[in-house]
Design a protein around this nucleic acid. Structure first.
Lengths: 206, 206
DNA sequence: TGTGATTGGATAGTGTTACTCTCTGATACT
DNA sequence: AGTATCAGAGAGTAACACTATCCAATCACA
C-alpha cells in the first residue's frame, strides 16, 4: 500500500498523513526505493487511533505522541507508566513548588474523606486539586456529601475496569492507558444524558 | 474599584482583563467619566468564574462566552437551556446529515440497552456516538457489560445531582449548567485516582 | 495649577498549534 | 517517452489567547 492509498483508507488528507509521519506519531513505511515506501494495516490502525485520541479525547498532537510512546514502549512498571499517561492527560496542571508543606489541601481532604490511599506525586492529585479549586472559585464548591457520592461510584467503575485488565503485561498497559483516555468522553456523555433522562423521569412522575 | 485594582484582585494581567471586556465575557464597569469606570465585587467573581471555565474545565473563550450567556440570560425552559449548554461543551461534534435514517447507531443501541429515554436532537447523543466510535476505531470497543455498568453509576450520580437542584428557576439554571461543566474535571480526576487506589488495594491483598 | 500617572478604547503584534501547500528530484506505470 | 506519483523538506496559513503599544482624556497630588 502506498501513502496515497493509506490516506484514502484512513479518510485523511495526504498532507495530514505526512504531517503525522513527520511528527513521529505514525511509524514510517518500509522504503522500497528512494521515493517509495509501502504501508500496511498497522498504519491504518495507527491512524485511526491517532484520530480517536486527537478527536473524541481531545488531545493535542504532543499529548497524543506522549500517550502513543507509552503504549508502544512501556516500562516494566505498569504503575509508573499509568502515572506518566495520566500526567499527560488534560487538564494540564503546573506542579507545586517543592517547599509547600501542603500543596493540595482540597485533594488531600477529599481523599482522606474517601479513605483512599494516594501518592501525592501522582498527577491526578494535582488535577483534583485544580478541579476543586475551580468549583470554589466559581462559587459552587463540592460538598463533602457530593464528593463521597461521586467517589463511591467512581471507585466501583474503577474496580470494574481493573477486574477486566488483561494479564499479559504489554496488553495490560495498553488496556489501562487507552482505557483511561478513551472511556472518559463516554463517561461524560453518559452523565449528560443521564441528567436528561432523570429530569424526564421527574417530569413524567409529576 | 478601578480596573487596575480589579486586575490585582483577580491576580490577572491588566491586558487580560481588558481582553475579556472586549470579548464580552466581563460586563463593563460603571463609567464615571470618559476615561474612568468603576468595578465591584461582581466583576471579581465573574473573573474567577471565567478562569475556572477556561482553566480547569478547558473551555475556549468562545465556549466560555456561550456558557456565561446562558447562565446570565436563560430562557424559561431549563431543559432547552441545558441542551444548549451541553452542545457548547467539548468535544465539539458536527451534526449528522438530516437525511440519515439512523445517524447515531451506537448511541441508540447503548441508550436502549440502558433503558434510557433520550432526545436524538440532544448534543450529548452525538457526543456519545463520537466517543463510542472512537473506542471502536482505537480497537477497544465498549462492551455492553461495561456500558451498563458505567451507565448505572452515572445515572445514580445524575439522580444525586438533580435531587439537590435549587427550586428558584434562575438558580436552577446556574446550578445545572455550571454543575455539569465544573464537576466534570472532578469526576475524571476521581476516576484516575480510584484506579490507583483500587490497584494499590489489589497489590496489598496479594 | 502644573505634572506625572492612570484610564478606556482601539489597533497591532506575538507565540503556539494543527494542519496545508509548494517545491524538488527521483522513480514508477503505460 | 511521457505522465503521474512518490518521499522528504520547507514555508505558508488560519485560529486562538493573549500581550503590547498608542492615544487623548482625566485624575491625584504638590
Amino acid at each position: 500500500m502506498r501513502i496515497s492509498a493509506l490516506a484514502a483508507e484512513a479518510e485523511l488528507p495526504l498532507a495530514t498523513v505526512k504531517y503525522y509521519l513527520r511528527e513521529g506519531l505514525l511509524h514510517p513505511g518500509i522504503a522500497s526505493s528512494a521515493t517509495q515506501a509501502s504501508y500496511d494495516e498497522s498504519h491504518v490502525r495507527r491512524l485511526r487511533l491517532i484520530r480517536a485520541l486527537t478527536g473524541a479525547v481531545g488531545l493535542s498532537v504532543q499529548q497524543t505522541r506522549a500517550i502513543l510512546t507509552l503504549v508502544d514502549d512501556p516500562g516494566d512498571d505498569l504503575y509508573i507508566t499509568l502515572g506518566r499517561a495520566v500526567s499527560t492527560l488534560p487538564p494540564a496542571v503546573h506542579e507545586a513548588s517543592g517547599d509547600d508543606p501542603d500543596p493540595y489541601p482540597r485533594a488531600r481532604a477529599a481523599l482522606e474523606a474517601l479513605g483512599q490511599v494516594y501518592d501525592p506525586q501522582y498527577a491526578a492529585v494535582a488535577q483534583l486539586e485544580a478541579a476543586l479549586a475551580a468549583t470554589e472559585a466559581a462559587g459552587m464548591p463540592m460538598s463533602e456529601e457530593r464528593l463521597l457520592e461521586y467517589g463511591r461510584h467512581l471507585r466501583e467503575i474503577a474496580a470494574f475496569d481493573l477486574e477486566r485488565m488483561p494479564h499479559e503485561p504489554h496488553a495490560a498497559v495498553e488496556y489501562t492507558v487507552l482505557g483511561t483516555a478513551l472511556y472518559e468522553p463516554v463517561l461524560l456523555a453518559l452523565r449528560r444524558l443521564a441528567h436528561q433522562d432523570v429530569a424526564a423521569g421527574r417530569i413524567a412522575a409529576t
